[in-house]
Structures are given as structure tokens and as C-alpha cells.
């Protein structure tokens, strides 16, 4: 964890943000957190998280929205399910992280590169119903702009190797035939989910 210190200001407990999070699809599971701390060290990326999941959840309860949303914690989640498997209260922490990522995307907390990756991935997926890795990569670097230019170069070697071993298809897969219907289903589900949440 990067942040070990206690801030100097006085923390004001305020229920608004907690309610917002509890209102999300999996957010209400957070109510069950007993602050045991197993998740804090069960995560594949715990060493680089701003806050451990446990601490993030304590901040949610305390109503500290800015700190929560600006933290890298949920973006670091790799969906490896370890925390979910271990959580003694059965909290699907991974799914909560999905919700927090979703909230961040929706509300514009998108500074981390992962945000761009998620957006790029979804755009590529939505266009075809299947993923084209080349497409995702291109979209991602477009979104990130010049600041990630160095990274493209760094990936070059690996890319060439993959290409030479036939691991990097140059052409996108065929689109799903029922793509239109698929997207109708998704739209309906999003609509129903919105209704259900409110």
C-alpha cells in the first residue's frame, strides 16, 4: 500500500456515498464487511494498491468519495477471484470492484490507463460481438494519446515475436451474426438493471 499515513483533517461520517455504493449491483454486499483484512493481502496486486480493499470499504462507509474514486485500488483488480474465495463474509469483492470501476467510468474518474483499456475493449467488443486484439490495442493507444507512446515501442519486440509465431492475427474475426439481437439484449438488461436499482 502506498498510503500508510493518517490524514490530519477530521473525518466526517456521512452516509451519502455509502448509500450510492450500496445502491449498485454488488455494492450492498459491502455492508457485510467486518474489516477482518483477509482481502488486503489476498490480492495479486496488493503491493501496489493505494488502499487495501478493506480500507477502501471503510472509506466508503465513512463517506470519503473522492479518496475512494481517485484511488487505484479497484483498477488494480485483476479479477483473479482470490479475495472472493477467501472473504469470510462471502462478499464478492471482485464484483464490487467491477461496480466501482463502472462508477468511475460513468463519473469520469478515468485517469488510470486501465480505464482507457476498459473503454477500448468494450468499444471493440460492442462493434462485433467478439474481440479483435489488434483493434483493442489500437483503440487503447488512441485513447491514451502521446503519453503512452513509449509503451507502444516497448511492446514492439513482443509483438513481433508473436507475429512470427502466428499468435497475432492481423484480421479481425467475423462479427457475430446475431450481433444486433445481442446488443438488444444488452440494452434491455441495462435498462432493467437501471430500473431495478432505483
Amino acid at each position: 500500500m502506498a498510503d500508510n499515513s493518517a490524514s490530519s483533517g477530521r473525518l466526517k461520517y456521512e452516509a451519502g456515498f455509502a448509500r450510492e455504493v450500496y445502491g449498485m449491483e454488488n455494492g450492498s454486499y459491502l455492508k457485510l464487511c467486518m474489516q477482518c483484512g483477509v482481502c488486503a493481502v489476498s490480492c495479486a496486486t496488493f503491493k501496489i494498491m493505494d488502499y487495501s480493499p478493506r480500507r477502501l470499504f471503510a472509506l466508503v462507509r465513512a463517506g470519503r468519495k473522492e479518496e475512494v474514486m481517485k484511488s487505484n485500488t479497484f483498477w488494480m483488480c485483476t479479477t483473479c477471484l482470490m479475495c472472493k474465495a477467501r472473504c469470510p463474509r462471502g462478499i464478492p469483492i471482485v464484483d464490487v470492484m467491477h461496480d466501482l470501476k463502472g462508477l468511475a467510468l460513468k463519473q469520469g474518474y478515468v485517469n488510470y490507463p486501465q480505464a482507457a483499456f476498459y473503454q477500448a475493449f468494450w468499444q471493440d467488443l460492442a462493434g462485433r460481438g467478439r474481440i479483435f486484439e489488434g483493434g483493442v490495442t489500437a483503440r487503447y493507444f488512441l485513447k491514451r494519446g502521446p503519453k503512452d507512446f513509449g509503451k507502444i515501442m516497448a511492446q514492439k519486440d513482443v509483438g513481433l515475436k508473436m507475429l512470427s509465431h502466428g499468435r497475432l492475427p492481423l484480421r479481425p474475426p467475423k462479427a457475430v451474426k446475431g450481433k444486433k439481437e445481442l446488443m438488444q439484449m444488452v440494452a434491455k438488461a441495462r435498462e432493467l438493471e437501471q430500473k431495478g436499482a432505483n
Binding site: 500500500m1 498510503d3 500508510n4 499515513s5 493518517a6 474489516q35 477482518c36 483484512g37 483477509v38 482481502c39 488486503a40 493481502v41 489476498s42 496488493f46 503491493k47 487495501s52 478493506r54 480500507r55 477467501r86 469470510p88
Partner: peptide, 27 residues
């Protein structure tokens, strides 16, 4: 802080407890 996992140092047989010390706020 409930430990997330316990590792072993195969050389010495020592066991390593990985946990978040919540009051000290450190891993």
C-alpha cells in the same frame, strides 16, 4: 488483522504470516 495467507521458507522451515496490520496501517 486476519492474515490472508501463510508462506513457508522451504530452506529454514520458518513460516511467514502475511497480514495487514490495520492499526499501524501497513502490510
Amino acid at each position: 488483522g486476519k492474515p490472508g495467507e501463510i508462506l513457508e521458507d522451504g530452506q529454514t522451515g520458518d513460516v511467514i504470516v502475511v497480514a495487514e496490520d490495520q492499526l499501524a496501517r501497513k502490510i
